[in-house]
């Protein structure tokens, strides 16, 4: 199984930290901004004609002789969408694809346990395979099975995928993207659009040590595993210049944190347990 039973037991202690959403379809365990038929009392409000008199506090009326409504925080579910990069750049280092799937599974497990609806999909330049949104604990096995199938192969086109995703998913929720984000298209703009549409975004960047610290000591022709593109590079100072370029790229991704996006860079050197319990917690994604 993609996650061990011991690790799944540990995940029982965690819950996702999500901001309140406005919309409601099914009742769940999330508080929403809307006040209504929940269990948790929130406040009193003067009765207005047309209000549902089932919520009138009759004992208060007995004491004060005025009609007040009892207001409750409405509780409902949130849809969690897991997008896992299935391109060849992820499968080039198998640990990357495996870690991405494990992290997505961990998110899914925590969400399903909280009665949230969870959908999962592998993406390349499109959404290749998708597991439609399901809720309830029994769905955890289907989710783990789906993620265990492993990634597809192809080229990454994050912008195209996100554009299609936004088109088909009007109701905002939590979108978790596990990828290396090595992609030419302007996907940060689409992420900003999703945020504007009340989506909560978690970007998990999975890199292998070879990508984080490549050893390049002689003139090389680098071949792209996805496109086959050949790039001629000279070894002189290349390692340093690559490190600068990677840092710049990661700063660009991290800059999206300014408008509420969670950005979590992880390495395949780290264990999935360490990432979930340390990195995710530090980022305030789980608690």
């Amino acid at each position: 199984m993609i996650l061990s039973s011991e690790f799944l037991q540990k995940l029982e202690r965690l819950s996702l930290v999500l901001r309140r959403t406005r919309n409601r379809q099914l009742a769940g365990s999330r508080e929403s901004y809307r006040l209504g038929a929940g269990l948790e009392f929130h406040d009193f409000a003067p009765y207005q004609p047309g209000d549902d008199y089932r919520y009138v506090d009759w004992s208060l009326y007995a004491r004060l002789g005025q009609l007040f409504l009892k207001l409750f925080v409405e509780e409902h579910d949130t849809n969690i969408h897991l997008l896992v990069d299935g391109s060849r750049s992820m499968s080039f280092h198998p640990q990357k694809a495996e870690l991405a799937a494990q992290l997505a599974a961990a998110f899914g497990y925590i969400s399903l346990r909280q009665l949230d609806g969870v959908s999962a999909a592998y993406m390349t330049d499109r959404i290749t395979t998708e597991l439609p949104a399901r809720r309830g604990r029994p769905q955890i096995f289907r989710l783990l099975q789906f993620l265990e199938k492993g990634p597809e192969s192809g080229m990454t086109d994050m912008a195209r995928v996100l554009a299609r995703f936004a088109y088909y998913h009007k109701r905002p929720g939590l979108l978790v993207i596990c990828s290396d984000f090595f992609c030419d298209s302007d996907f940060p703009q689409l992420i900003r659009n999703l945020v504007a549409a009340r989506w909560q975004i978690v970007l998990v960047q999975v890199l292998s040590p070879e990508e984080a610290r490549p050893q390049l000591e002689q003139p090389l022709v680098l071949v792209d595993s996805e496109s086959g593109e050949r790039v001629l590079v000279d070894a002189e100072g290349l390692t340093e210049r690559y490190r600068d370029r990677l840092e710049r790229f990661q700063r660009q991704l991290a800059s999206m944190m300014a408008f509420g996006v969670h950005y979590i860079p992880v390495s395949t050197d780290d264990s999935v347990e360490d990432i979930v319990f340390r990195a995710f917690r530090e980022q305030g994604v789980v608690r």
Binding site: M90, F92, H93, D184, S208, V221, V223, D224, S225, R245
Partner: peptide
């Protein structure tokens, strides 16, 4: 020649 996961950063 060396195959890398992606030449995006290069």
């Amino acid at each position: 020649e060396r195959v890398v996961s992606s030449t995006y950063l290069f």
